[in-house]
């Protein structure tokens, strides 16, 4: 296992695993049949509106989580945003992403 892999795993444990207690499998997702959509599906908005007063979209998302009382998710998202600033963590995505498509897997992430 490379140092980079260990760093990634640590990040996994410190962020989404920490936040997982606050999330159930179907929390706010996986609505089981046709439902009336929320207002977010109904409009296009500008990058300026999306960013608010934040430097990037992840930080803005963390603010939204915090404002709605989802503190663990907010904390995890802020940590992720900081980690993603470190370019060494993720090498070139080209080959890997190509491999994903070759892997016969639908890339939901």
């Amino acid at each position: 296992m490379r140092i980079k892999d260990i760093e990634l795993l640590e990040l996994f444990l410190e962020t989404v695993c920490e936040a997982s207690e606050s999330q159930s499998q179907d929390d706010d997702a996986g609505t089981t049949a046709l439902t009336v959509p929320g207002p977010e599906a109904n409009r296009a908005c500008s990058m300026e509106q999306q960013l608010g007063n934040r430097a990037n979209l992840m930080e803005q998302l963390a603010d939204r989580y915090a404002a709605s009382g989802q503190s663990k998710l907010a904390l995890a998202t802020r940590r992720l945003a900081r980690a993603l600033e470190e370019d060494h963590l993720l090498s070139s995505d080209d080959g890997d992403r190509h491999q994903r498509l070759l892997d016969y897997v639908y890339p939901v992430v």
Partner: peptide
């Protein structure tokens, strides 16, 4: 983010891919 949290610790195998998409 929600999906990763909801499924953790499952999802470790695709975690680098998840991060890359977030980035």
């Amino acid at each position: 983010v929600r999906n990763a949290a909801a499924n953790a610790p499952r999802g470790a195998a695709i975690w680098p891919k998840t991060l890359r998409t977030l980035q």
